[in-house]
C-alpha cells in the first residue's frame, strides 16, 4: 500500500504551493507499522464526515491518496471539518515521512 498526503491552503498557503507530497510506502515499514497504517486508513475510510459549510478561511485542506491492490481511494478533508480518525491518520503520516518523490 502506498499513501500520499498533499496539504494546501492555510494562513501560510503560499509556502505550500508546489511542495512535493509526503509519501509513505508500506514496503518500507516494519510489519507492525504497516498494520498500524492499514488500520488507520480503514478507520478514516469508514468514519462519517462532519458537516462543512465552506465558510472557513485559512483552514488547510488535506488530500490523502491510498493506492493498494483494491485500486485508489482519495480522502479529502478540511481542518474546519476534521473527523477524528482522519486526524489520527494525518498525525501518523507526518511522523513517518519517506523521502520526497523525485519529479
Amino acid at each position: 500500500m502506498r499513501v500520499t498526503l498533499v496539504s494546501s491552503g492555510g494562513f501560510a498557503a503560499a509556502l505550500a504551493l508546489g511542495r512535493p507530497p509526503l509519501v509513505v510506502d508500506d514496503g518500507a515499514l516494519s510489519d507492525e507499522e504497516a498494520a498500524e497504517l492499514a488500520s488507520l486508513v480503514a478507520a478514516a475510510r469508514a468514519e462519517d464526515l462532519p458537516p462543512d459549510d465552506g465558510r472557513a478561511r485559512d483552514a488547510m485542506t488535506h488530500t490523502v491518496t491510498v493506492a493498494d491492490g483494491g485500486g485508489t481511494t482519495v480522502l479529502r478533508r478540511s481542518d474546519a471539518a476534521m473527523p477524528p480518525a482522519y486526524a489520527r491518520l494525518l498525525d501518523w503520516l507526518r511522523a513517518h515521512p519517506a523521502p520526497p518523490e523525485q519529479s
Binding site: 492555510g10 494562513f11 501560510a12 459549510d53 465558510r55 472557513a56 478561511r57 485559512d58 483552514a59 488547510m60 481542518d79 474546519a80 486526524a87 498525525d91
Partner: peptide
C-alpha cells in the same frame, strides 16, 4: 489545536 499544528484559521464562527 492538534499536535504541532502549523496554522491558525477562522472557521466561520470562531478562531482556531
Amino acid at each position: 489545536r492538534g499536535v504541532a499544528y502549523q496554522n491558525a484559521f477562522w472557521d466561520g464562527q470562531e478562531m482556531v
